[in-house]
């Protein structure tokens, strides 16, 4: 049996290529499961999972919750907005209190980069990072790469451009790690103010011109402009951003070959992507959402296999 090389999913950086392929192969089986009349397997019926969301989320939270339910795990949900965190409790105390209720795994989204790694050192449970600030969002990168693999048969050799707010995007960082490990070529495209300095050191190239980037690529991953993380003005106006980096049908059609369009959501229609593109056949945005459940089932299943074996009385 193949197992993951890690005990927690903190980021793509810690995974090796075999881990990625194992997750994809397992997700293939779970994708078949979630298309059955009864979309549930009993594998995790003795595992309890806590979903801790210290930051807003719709898609990721629902996707994790559904994945856990499809595996028959017991789940508890926690949102920071209605919790004792507001009363001054520390993260470690909050999580240890939850673990005292006999929880085996923790899925956590947190606004601070490194929060998941910190937690994995401090508490005794399997940690899955569901997004930590501007650092990593591993399951999103896994489902993006899985969707590319599904569309093209493999990721190796494909040309992928990540467009938009790279500076504030954990999706971009995790995607770069995942695509590089799988042998894809990656370029990033966006206004200079939204590209981190020395991004090339991650093994990607910078292409400031969207047209040129599209001509080069097989896949365009359009990122959202993360206004909530911006402490200052990074570009003159939304209108100017849209004119230079917004993906519209005329721009897409000006490229001779077919470009597959990804978007991690939530979309700002009319800003980074036009409605016509988002709803076109070239966009596989809803496939990404479906694949998200299968990928998260695979990650949870493979990590649960590494939990300490239940004690026999």
């Amino acid at each position: 049996m193949k197992t993951l090389s890690v005990d927690h999913l903190l980021g793509i950086k810690q995974l090796n290529e075999n881990d990625l392929h194992l997750i994809f192969e397992t997700a293939d089986h779970f994708k078949e499961v979630i298309n059955r009349p009864i979309k549930k397997v009993p594998s995790l019926r003795d595992v309890t999972i806590a979903n801790l969301f210290f930051e807003n989320s719709t898609r990721t939270k629902l996707s994790f919750e559904l994945a856990e339910k499809r595996l028959s795990a017991d789940i508890i949900n926690f949102s920071a907005a209605q919790s004792s965190v507001k009363k001054g409790e520390t993260l470690v105390d909050t999580v240890n209190n939850i673990l005292a209720m006999k929880v085996d795994m923790v899925v956590m989204r947190h606004p601070h980069p490194g929060a998941a790694a910190f937690l994995s050192r401090e508490v005794d449970a399997c940690i899955i990072n569901a997004g930590d600030g501007t650092h990593e969002h591993p399951t999103q990168a896994l489902l993006d790469a899985y969707s590319i693999r599904e569309k093209f048969g493999e990721v190796a050799g494909k040309r992928v451009v990540i467009v938009g707010d790279i500076l504030h995007s954990r999706v971009a960082i995790s995607n770069i790690f995942a695509l590089n490990k799988l042998g894809a070529e990656v370029k990033v495209c966006g206004p200079k103010s939204l590209l981190p300095k020395h991004i090339e050191s991650l093994g990607v190239r910078v292409e400031p011109d969207l047209q040129k980037a599209l001509k080069w690529c097989d896949v365009a991953n359009m990122l959202r402009v993360q206004n909530e993380r911006m402490d200052k003005s990074y570009f003159p106006s939304i209108r100017e951003y849209t004119q230079l980096y917004g993906l519209t049908m005329p721009v897409l059609e000006s490229v001779k070959h077919e470009v597959t369009v990804l978007h991690p959501g939530p979309m700002n229609r009319g800003v980074e992507i036009s409605s016509a593109v988002a709803d076109s056949d070239q966009a596989i945005i809803l496939d990404q959402v479906e694949n998200g459940v299968a990928i998260r089932m695979a990650v949870i299943y493979l990590l649960a296999a590494k939990l300490i074996k239940p004690e026999h009385p």
Binding site: T3, H29, S43, L44, A304, L307, K309, P310
Partner: peptide, 24 residues
């Protein structure tokens, strides 16, 4: 039919099985 995810020895067996494709 693949039964991997329905086995009662998940997390108990030293050698967990690899799933195979379902063709149903």
């Amino acid at each position: 039919l693949d039964i991997t995810f329905f086995r009662d020895d998940f997390r108990r067996s030293e050698k967990p099985r690899v799933a195979q494709p379902n063709q149903m």
